[in-house]
């Protein structure tokens, strides 16, 4: 049964230090309230998996010292520029970065969905991404001749954390088009979700919503967090707060500025208002 919790803090308490934590891209709803709760609880040594790329989620966790490793195809604040805390952490070797490419992450999660040990993927051969990954293998296509292909080990995250527009009391979570969230829930040992609202009834009983819904079967816990993706957006519900993100990018150029940001927007507050 999915646990219906009362706050993002309770969600953050379930994600242990050292966990391999899969997080969504900024165009799918991110549980920024869950991220802030992880910072507040002082999470440590998290190993982040960006599915497939990161922005402010990784920035906050890295800047706050919650992260030891990160695997992702990119970390960027998009039009607001480079991700300053990530960049600083790499330059000063505070975290281990495992560079990859977007479809390699999707494919390795699909391997876990299927319960197979690896997934083959085209591309990659001749890149420094592959040259620097001793956990990947190049082998011949067993059905072909002289056809090298990369084998990626399955990635099975300990937990995934994301946000949804709505959930129900059965733990079903409506995600609409954002199907990468479905893959992440399938592939991870535990899925934790904050939602804008918890609706009455059953999202799976109506075919209009069922197709875009992750069944509660895959969801470990949900909690309501109004505006829980802010300063990112929820497609068709609310927009990214570009002014705030630009303010963040400016402050986070230095650790002192970042710490001031955390004081004002994260640690001095208890939950979404």
């Amino acid at each position: 049964m999915t646990a219906v919790l009362t706050s993002a803090a309770e969600i953050a308490a379930k994600i242990p230090d050292g966990a391999l934590l899969a997080l969504p891209p900024e165009y799918a709803p991110c549980s920024m309230e869950g991220i802030r709760a992880l910072v507040r609880r002082g999470a440590r040594n998290l190993r982040l998996l960006g599915v497939p790329q990161f922005g402010i989620q990784a920035e906050l966790l890295i800047g706050a010292g919650c992260v030891s490793e990160i695997e992702t195809a990119a970390v960027t604040l998009g039009e607001h520029g480079l991700a300053p805390r990530f960049t600083d952490a790499i330059k000063h070797q505070k975290i281990t970065m495992r560079d990859t490419t977007c479809p390699a992450i999707h494919a390795a999660l699909q391997a876990s969905e299927k319960g197979v040990p690896f997934m083959p993927l085209r591309g990659l051969i001749g890149s420094d991404i592959l040259a620097r990954r001793d956990d990947w293998h190049v082998a011949d296509n067993p059905f072909g001749e002289n056809d090298p292909i990369v084998y990626l080990p399955a990635i099975k995250p300990d937990a995934t954390l994301f946000h949804g527009a709505k959930g129900d009391v059965h733990g079903n979570v409506w995600i609409g088009l954002r199907r990468e969230l479905m893959v992440m829930a399938h592939a991870s040992k535990a899925a934790y979700v904050t939602v804008e609202k918890i609706v009455d009834g059953d999202l799976l009983s109506d075919p209009q919503t069922a197709a875009g819904t992750i069944p509660g079967l895959y969801i470990s816990a949900i909690a309501k967090a109004h505006k829980g993706a802010w300063p990112l957006g929820v497609p068709h519900y609310y927009e990214r707060d570009n002014e705030h993100l630009s303010h963040y990018a400016e402050l986070a150029r230095t650790q002192e500025g970042f710490d001031a940001y955390l004081d004002e927007w994260v640690t001095s507050r208890t939950a979404a208002e």
Partner: peptide, 17 residues
């Protein structure tokens, strides 16, 4: 020990091929 670090390779190491 990079002199400068940029976002990352995105989907290039696949789509370029």
């Amino acid at each position: 020990k990079p002199k400068a670090r940029f976002p990352g390779s995105f989907g290039s190491a696949y789509l370029y091929y």
